[in-house]
Computed example of a mutant assay.
Amino acid sequence: MKSFVIVFALCIAGAFAGLTDQQIVKLREYKIGCLAETGVSEDVVNKLKVGEAVVFDEKLNCFSACILKKVGIMRPDGSIDEQVARDKLPKDWPQDKVDHVVNACKVQVGKDSCETGGKVLGCLAKTRAIALVN
């Protein structure tokens, strides 16, 4: 898959010069599937999308884990695949920025895979290493 900013399939069009139409379609499918699977409110996901403060409750945590698993950053056992995370960061980022993001986010661990997903996604959002799609 073409290298791109770590993707959290949410909701904003037009910010994806680096993503193909096929990748955007796939990410939308992931979002729809994870919304249905976790029961998280799309309103909460949309708040996260626009940078509003959100509480990472059980549903949002599980949504986060679901998305991260679908894009391959999180393994089925809930651990983070550091190499996949690195591969998904933009190739034009300086190595020190890649290292900062990966090192900061890979150590975010919760009591289960859902909580870990929420912590990792929160970290990725904080470091501005996520892209959002409709």
Score class of each variant (00 low, 15 high):
residue 2 K to Y: 02
residue 2 K to T: 13
residue 3 S to M: 06
residue 4 F to L: 10
residue 4 F to H: 12
residue 9 A to D: 12
residue 10 L to D: 02
residue 11 C to D: 03
residue 13 A to K: 08
residue 14 G to N: 06
residue 15 A to S: 05
residue 19 L to M: 14
residue 20 T to L: 04
residue 20 T to A: 11
residue 21 D to G: 14
residue 22 Q to N: 12
residue 24 I to D: 11
residue 26 K to S: 09
residue 26 K to Y: 09
residue 26 K to Q: 13
residue 28 R to G: 07
residue 30 Y to D: 07
residue 31 K to Q: 13
residue 31 K to M: 10
residue 31 K to A: 11
residue 31 K to R: 15
residue 32 I to L: 12
residue 33 G to D: 15
residue 39 G to H: 02
residue 39 G to K: 07
residue 45 V to A: 03
residue 47 K to Q: 09
residue 48 L to E: 00
residue 49 K to C: 13
residue 52 E to C: 02
residue 54 V to R: 08
residue 56 F to N: 06
residue 56 F to Q: 04
residue 57 D to Q: 03
residue 58 E to M: 05
residue 60 L to I: 13
residue 64 S to T: 08
residue 65 A to R: 03
residue 68 L to H: 04
residue 70 K to G: 03
residue 71 V to Q: 08
residue 72 G to W: 04
residue 72 G to R: 07
residue 72 G to P: 04
residue 73 I to D: 08
residue 74 M to L: 11
residue 78 G to S: 01
residue 80 I to F: 04
residue 83 Q to D: 13
residue 83 Q to E: 15
residue 85 A to G: 14
residue 85 A to E: 14
residue 88 K to V: 00
residue 90 P to G: 02
residue 91 K to D: 15
residue 93 W to E: 07
residue 93 W to T: 03
residue 95 Q to A: 15
residue 96 D to I: 07
residue 96 D to S: 13
residue 96 D to C: 12
residue 98 V to L: 09
residue 99 D to V: 13
residue 99 D to R: 12
residue 99 D to H: 13
residue 99 D to M: 12
residue 100 H to M: 13
residue 101 V to C: 12
residue 101 V to S: 09
residue 104 A to K: 12
residue 104 A to M: 12
residue 105 C to R: 06
residue 106 K to C: 03
residue 107 V to A: 14
residue 107 V to C: 04
residue 109 V to S: 07
residue 109 V to W: 00
residue 112 D to V: 01
residue 113 S to T: 11
residue 113 S to C: 10
residue 114 C to S: 10
residue 115 E to F: 01
residue 115 E to S: 07
residue 117 G to C: 13
residue 118 G to M: 00
residue 119 K to Q: 09
residue 119 K to E: 02
residue 119 K to I: 00
residue 120 V to T: 05
residue 121 L to V: 03
residue 122 G to P: 03
residue 123 C to E: 00
residue 123 C to M: 00
residue 123 C to S: 05
residue 124 L to M: 12
residue 125 A to E: 05
residue 127 T to R: 03
residue 128 R to A: 10
residue 128 R to Q: 11
residue 129 A to D: 06
residue 130 I to R: 02
residue 130 I to Y: 00
residue 133 V to S: 12
residue 133 V to L: 07
